[in-house]
Design a protein around this nucleic acid. Structure first.
Lengths: 189, 189
DNA sequence: TCAAAAGTAGACCGACTTGTCTACCACGGA
DNA sequence: TCCGTGGTAGACAAGTCGGTCTACTTTTGA
């Protein structure tokens, strides 16, 4: 199954760096060193290759973030570790991740605005998974379920905002600023 | 100058709804009812039409937001009004704005990741303008310049995060949740 | 009134798009 | 040995891409 994974890896890299509609099938094939028929043996269309790329990116990012957060004690420290993790990401200090070009899921939804499109939906799934990860840790530092949900939501918005600011404005310290705000929100509870 | 503006309006609408690379010149021309030569009399390339569309969107969004915020007393009330404004935007209750498809500037940067590209830079300019608007009002409720900068930054991240959450996840209450968090950050100062 | 300016329609260019198809090759197991 | 599997290379189809060009018409202003 090496060829299929080569295709997904190459497609994801090119889609992430240049946008999905800007990259043609032929370019993916050439850079992956795979024949066209092989692609259409594994995928029924470009769109299904895009879906596979989104799914792959979901697994990559989620497991990376989960590992980073779980390297610290559950609760407050893990939540703050998230901001250190994305800070390393923004500054390309995370060898497991390709060069920072914003959030692939946000970018993909910009190209597939229809919320019913499979690609858009798959991106929403990723964000929901990350939110659940945050909520799990938020429950360790909050008294009630409702409070945990609120805290997780606040941290989620700060993280997404930092990603946008880092990418659009090139602010490489966006994650640290978000962390400073976040740390003030966790303690008072 | 009616034709030129028609082109920019139509291009912006199509680019915003479907993404920039997904829309061809011919489609813009057909929907605008304008001949191809007319386009190339006013713009030297598709890219320069894209730049004009970004600039037009900047003016549209900024003046809309500024008007909404200035309709309330400067400072705390204006800052909170921002969240009500984007809430109306998310829920398509703002007749001056087309149907919500996320932030055009974030989406555009997803398609032009290179921070040196004119389109990317123009998007960064828009975000900086909005930030300055926030900072101006933050200075009314903060004691120091540094505190104002921090508050404006926090509110900015919350707003960007809410836009992302509303678009990717379809959470139409994202702005209200962000407002609730924000209101807790303004008062204690 | 008349000429310049600005717009239209549409052919045309070369390159590229997704996707199909044919022909061939290399390897692994019966 | 022989066949099936999975791959390669590349032609091909039908259409679109950004962009140029010609020829014609409409508008505008002096």
């Amino acid at each position: 199954m090496g060829r299929k994974q080569d295709l997904v890896d190459t497609a994801l890299r090119l889609f992430y760096e240049h946008g999905i509609h800007a990259i043609g099938i032929n370019q993916v094939l050439q850079e992956a060193g795979v024949a066209k028929q092989t692609l259409y043996n594994h995928f029924e269309s470009k769109d299904s290759l895009v879906e596979a790329a989104v799914e792959h990116r979901d697994n990559l990012i989620f497991s990376w973030l989960e590992t980073r957060m779980n390297s610290r004690p559950a609760g407050e420290e893990a939540l703050l570790e998230m901001f250190d993790a994305v800070h390393d990401w923004f500054n390309n200090r995370e060898p497991a991740l390709p060069r920072f070009c914003g959030c692939f899921f946000i970018n993909a939804c910009g190209e597939y605005s229809d919320p019913e499109h499979p690609v858009h939906k798959r991106c929403a799934v990723h964000k929901a998974r990350v939110f659940e990860l945050l909520k799990m840790h938020a429950e360790k530092v909050c008294c009630s379920q409702a409070e945990a949900e609120q805290l997780a939501n606040a941290l989620f918005l700060l993280k997404e905002g930092a990603i946008v600011k880092a990418h659009v404005e090139g602010d490489l310290d966006a994650a640290l600023k978000a962390k400073a705000i976040a740390s003030g929100m966790i303690l008072p509870h």
